[in-house]
């Protein structure tokens, strides 16, 4: 997003290293520019920040609460700590919680090898989960002629909902229910294949971090390559079009 005051230059430190940033940027933006890795799941360039997965929580000196890097704006003199024993511990826990929540069976998943959840487990060294798996039972919706929605693999990051409503403007998908029972539905929890609102744009497939929304016709495991960078481009185009109006 373009902001008028963005010419303002801010200096801060990330993990002790002094960096420069423009006002209005988030900690995550600045960390990326400086090759500092902060794990994320619900965040996706081009979508409105959501702050739900809590993986990007970082410490800020003088603030006793952890803040999500994807939303928190940088400020002059800020001292950010993106990685320490405590944050690593919390991130591992959050991943473990996600793995226990649904039925994430990487070995038979269409997203095997292209899954953000799977790859974060690898990168963050989450080698097993200590809590019992909840093993819920969700019906797979394969009624659509092009896509399949499988809540068993969903992490409720809300990317598909945001891309569907904010970028595509169809708002076919949303989250129903609450708490542990929340899940993605299309329209009034109808068969996706009969949706009067779905434009078949496939953006939801591209943004899904796991194998929860996939394209049909890919027969085996590990073939789900995604074009996530497209969304940032679309968002930019939209923004530009809006400014012209």
């Amino acid at each position: 997003m373009t902001e008028i005051q963005s010419v303002q230059i801010i200096t801060l430190t990330i993990d002790g290293k002094p960096v420069g940033a423009s006002g209005g940027e988030t900690i995550l933006d600045v960390a990326k520019q400086n090759q500092v890795f902060i794990p994320t799941l619900c965040h996706l360039e081009g979508l409105i920040p959501y702050g739900a997965c809590r993986l990007c929580l970082v410490e800020i000196k003088g603030n006793n609460k952890l803040v999500p890097a994807c939303i928190t704006k940088v400020a002059e003199g800020m001292e950010v700590i993106t990685n320490n024993e405590r944050l690593q511990r919390f991130r591992r826990w959050i991943l473990e919680l996600l793995f226990t929540e649904r039925n994430h069976v990487c070995s038979v998943c269409v997203a095997n090898g292209f899954c953000e959840l799977q790859s974060l487990a690898e990168v963050l060294g989450m080698d097993h989960v200590r809590l019992p798996y909840l093993h819920p039972k969700f019906v797979v919706d394969a009624t659509h002629d092009r896509f399949v929605s499988d809540n068993n693999r969903c992490i409720l990051c809300g990317r598909c909902v945001r891309v569907c409503s904010d970028i595509e403007g169809a708002h076919t998908l949303d989250i129903m229910g609450r708490g542990i029972k929340a899940r993605i539905v299309s329209d009034l929890d109808d068969d996706w294949g009969n949706s009067p609102t779905c434009t078949r744009c496939s953006k939801c497939v591209q943004v899904c971090p796991t194998g929860a929304i996939k394209e049909k016709g890919r027969r085996s495991v590990g073939e789900k390559f995604k074009h996530r960078d497209v969304i940032a481009h679309l968002a930019e185009m939209r923004e530009a079009a809006r400014e012209e109006d």
Binding site: S165, H171, T172, L173, I175, M176, V185, D187, L188, D189
Partner: peptide, 10 residues
Amino acid sequence: PLSKVYGVAT
């Protein structure tokens, strides 16, 4: 949108 109505109602 239908899905939003449903999301809120549930």
